[in-house]
């Protein structure tokens, strides 16, 4: 994990800064424990995946009933990713 791969651009730039910022903002806005929210960027797949971890008991708030909140978050984050010129996946992980 800590190894720098050959494919790394080396510039240290992350693939989707706006998408990530928006995702962090949105999730932190609606959970009970904003400090426990972490977003990691997995850049190994076909396109960057933004993986969201939240504190105990907050997953339900992020998903919302019938996944509505999660879906809204995805929609807005994908819009933000347009500014980064990439497509992103957003995963909510326990």
């Amino acid at each position: 994990m800590s190894e720098v791969s050959d494919l790394d651009t080396g510039s240290g730039t992350e693939p989707a800064p706006h998408a990530r910022a928006v995702l962090e903002y949105l999730v932190r806005s609606i959970v009970e424990a904003p400090d426990a929210v972490e977003v990691e960027v997995d850049d190994n797949g076909r396109r960057p995946s933004l993986n969201v971890h939240v504190g105990d008991g907050d997953m339900g708030r992020v998903i919302g009933k019938r996944g509505r909140v999660a879906q809204a978050i995805r929609t807005v984050v994908r819009a933000a990713a347009v500014r980064d010129d990439v497509d992103v996946d957003i995963e909510f992980l326990d």
Binding site: S29, I30, G64, R68, V69, A72, T75, V76, A79
Partner: peptide, 14 residues
């Protein structure tokens, strides 16, 4: 208006 609707929904949730 998909993003608009989503923003509105998230604002309401907030």
């Amino acid at each position: 208006g998909n993003t608009y609707t989503a923003v509105q929904e998230l604002a309401r949730t907030y």
